[in-house]
Design a protein around this nucleic acid. Sequence first.
RNA 1: GGGGGUGUAGCUCAGUUUGGUUUAGAGCGCCUGCCUGUCACGCAGGAGGUCGCGGGUUCGAGCCCCGUCACUCCCGCCA
Length: 593
Amino acid sequence: MNNKYRSEYCGGLNKKYLGKKVRLAGWIHRKRDHGGLIFVDLRDHTGICQLVFNPEKNKGPYGIVNGLRVESVISVDGDVVERSPETVNPRLATGEIEVSVTGIEVESSAEVLPFQIADEENVGEELRLKFRFLDLRREALHKNIIYRSKIINFIRQHLSSREFTEISTPILTCSSPEGARDYLVPSRIHKGKFYALPQAPQQFKQLLMISGFHRYFQIAPCFRDEDSRADRSPGEFYQLDLEMSFCTQEDVFSVVENLFIEMTEQLSDKQIMFKPFPRFSYEEAMNKFGTDKPDIRFGLEMKDVTQVFRNSEFKAFQNNTSKGKTVKALVVPGLADSPRSFFDKSEAYAKELGAGGLAYITMKDGKLKSPILKFFGEEEKNQLLSTLELKDGDAVFFGAGKWDKTCNIMGLMRTYFAKAVNCIPQNVMAFCWVVDFPMYEYNEDLKKIEFSHNPFSMPQGGMDDLLNKDPLDIKAFQYDIVCNGVELSSGAIRNHKPEIMYKAFEIAGYKRDEVDRNFGHMIKAFKYGAPPHGGIAPGIDRIVMLFSDSPNIREVIAFPMNQKAQDLMVGAPSEVKKEQLKELGIRIEDKEE
RNA sequence: GGGGGUGUAGCUCAGUUUGGUUUAGAGCGCCUGCCUGUCACGCAGGAGGUCGCGGGUUCGAGCCCCGUCACUCCCGCCA
């Protein structure tokens, strides 16, 4: 690094350099002009160092820096000198010394910036995205991107030393009928035909297992043309895609748990709440937490009280005790004394989520209190008390209706109350596995049975289950890993047996020739000797988000798109020249309503 | 496609409750001047506004009403 621009980095200077001549290069972070003396905080990627420009000692450099704005790029020569004790800045790593400048070279003089780099003040996202190269200079974002690099580097080293081979898979591939909307790329050579960008390297990684690669991973770009969320960037994102051959579900769990535990311990100061990671069946997760991505940093588990109201006079509950319906209770300590307005507000939120209402009972001085209590018989009250184990100060909220919808709503209320009573611990990682996902689900709109996840997952009972069980009761070797209520990934042990695959597709309404047409290359591959295999693909962006406590996925991506899948900096997507379209055989239809 | 929030100086915001203080304010930034120990330097002065856009109500609209656009959060969607 000793070249014409610099001999040292700004952040590395200290008393050891006293008396030495150094050359530094970087950005003018701040400038303090005292008339007869100018201080400059010079910033490079390692930190900040104070430069002093004194016109009595070196008139030239003083005059030049005097005319520069912040964020201009300079290279300076100077002497490292000790600061007098009263001028030491303990907040700066280099605060004991400063560089008395003897020469300066202006590499780039900066215009007035659209927003300030040195300030931490919030700037509107639109402007930040438009000037992303400036936003990336700011400490918060800069730090995140470096952290992301560290995480990815850790993953590479960890997996490479554990028999995993990193292999790239195609970006231009072919559209598949399942799943998300594809991004299409027109073919010039084959007019009217299209490549698709991969939604995930799913098929390729399975083919790699068939190719005998034992264990594969990749930091894989994935493309899905779906709408964004705070934790879901539009268009493109990255997965840690991994797959293992001759493995069971346990083997995958072991590798992934190990990875996340070591990553957390080595790259963060966060505590892992539960080791090994707890496991919940899909059904259990729904029943206790009302979601398939439970946040287990806090308790507040839901309890099922359907049986209590089987013969109740209270019809609002009794009507929801038949098959497929449920009555759920959520006990929240410390809310019994809340004002009426709190309960009203909570109910309003529940209704927003689609609940009919939000009945509640409070427990105070050993007595139950509630507007609905008069509808309950003595036996019901006793059963409730024993089921819910109510303590003084508790409030219990009820939800009743169809099982999945009610679980869902009460699950969201659980999070709502957790925030209300402020019982979510910070700086912890609560990982868990959700297992035993159903193989199929019933689509109410289309009145048909569909795959609930990946069609290539192995049904737990194999061919036997497919032949003999109610499809909706069949479980798959399909699992999710969840942390702090964020779904990091889905994974599965795959179905490597063609006959079971045809049968699985048949149940979802695909005829044999349809399967051959859409997935023929996969089936064919499975016929030439396929090892049992399985894997998982945690989202890199979400991992970095969790580790860096970022509220938003754009905070961990160097050049993200906005909510409408536009890159405001380069202006993508953009129109293209007529000639380009013509070459591709594409004509744009007039926009019409 | 649907629902919520936001939109006022280059940036971050106040002003909107209850329409009427004149020339719509503040901090930061910017420009000019002063300043040799600051580190968010300080001091003095100055420039900078289609109050997102369009329409309406009114004697009068940044403020009320309708529409629209942009950004954002959520639902749908994302095996």
